[in-house]
């Protein structure tokens, strides 16, 4: 009797999960993909870093790229704004469509294209200038010269990342005088100032203390209303906390992807199962 009840309950739970998954998948599919990656390969003379990556990233969601170190998450992220161009040894092939435009094609206006994608790196890299100039930098590159507009944007974006109260009386101080957590928020404010559509975040909390990590995570939750966030992490709990969609990568390939509740709680592949067990 008990076993029957249990099996019935588990079936019921499974059905519920399936129907919930269907809803989640359909929700994701409803949103038009802002990024489409088709057959992306990145290789060096020593071997392949990314192998035939096919991925659709929906708008206004947090997509987490998960996987062990060296699996190609950062390379995939940097392929999206062609920062891979800085590394001459990398050979990139395939298509990356951002809003339907293939950014891998020659003749692209790289500067304009990159402004659509704010980058937040593992460690904050404030530019060698004042706090104010860091946020104003992208705006000036955009050709905005009005001091009023720039000052307004600096204030708005510093408020947005919760930094304004901490720095408003020392905007002319060097950016590297801030704490690491503050620097990371400054870098986010700097990226937001150029009004990107996508935020690329490469393990942005790995160098931060738990309080700063929480601030950044809360900011991401808030920002996804207006931005698509692609987050690289290997912290499983962070993926669970933030992700709308998880892409698990291993040795340059996408092994599994889906809603975090599905793939992190019921992984289908042995590799992900092992990763989750080791990770926990």
């Amino acid at each position: 009797m008990n076993s029957m009840t249990l099996s019935y309950q588990s079936q019921l739970t499974a059905r519920r999960a399936v129907s919930q998954n269907e809803i989640k998948v359909s929700e994701l599919k409803e949103a038009a993909p802002i990024v489409e990656i088709k057959g992306l390969n990145v290789r060096t003379k020593d071997g392949e870093i990314l192998k035939n990556i096919n991925l659709e990233i929906p708008k206004n969601k947090i997509v987490v790229l998960l996987g062990p170190s060296g699996c190609g998450k950062t390379t995939l992220l940097k392929s999206l704004n062609r920062l891979t161009d800085l590394h001459k040894e990398l050979k990139v092939s395939g298509q990356i469509l951002i809003d339907g435009q293939d950014i891998t094609k020659a003749g692209q206006n790289l500067a304009n294209m990159r402004q659509k994608m704010g980058l937040l790196s593992q460690r904050p890299f404030p530019l060698p200038a004042s706090i104010y100039k860091n946020v104003a930098y992208g705006l000036k590159l955009k050709g905005i010269r009005s001091k009023k507009l720039i000052s307004h944007s600096v204030e708005t974006n510093l408020k947005r990342v919760g930094l304004w109260n901490e720095v408003q009386d020392r905007l002319k101080s060097p950016a590297n005088s801030l704490s690491i957590g503050q620097q990371q928020r400054l870098c986010l404010a700097r990226g937001l100032a150029v009004k990107p559509t996508i935020i690329l975040a490469d393990e942005p909390t790995s160098a931060l203390d738990p309080i700063s990590t929480k601030i950044i995570e809360n900011l991401f939750k808030d920002l996804k209303k207006h931005y698509t966030i692609i987050l690289v992490t290997h912290v499983l709990r962070q993926a669970l906390r933030l992700a709308d969609h998880v892409v698990f990568m291993y040795y340059g390939e996408i092994i599994e992807q889906g809603h975090p509740d599905d793939i992190l709680k019921n992984p289908k592949t042995k590799i992900l199962k092992k990763y989750l067990i080791d990770g926990n």
Binding site: N112, P126, L127, P128, Y137, K142, R190, V194
Partner: peptide, 9 residues
């Protein structure tokens, strides 16, 4: 730092 600058356009 270079990547930060380039990614800002």
């Amino acid at each position: 730092m270079k990547e930060a600058s380039l990614s800002l356009g």
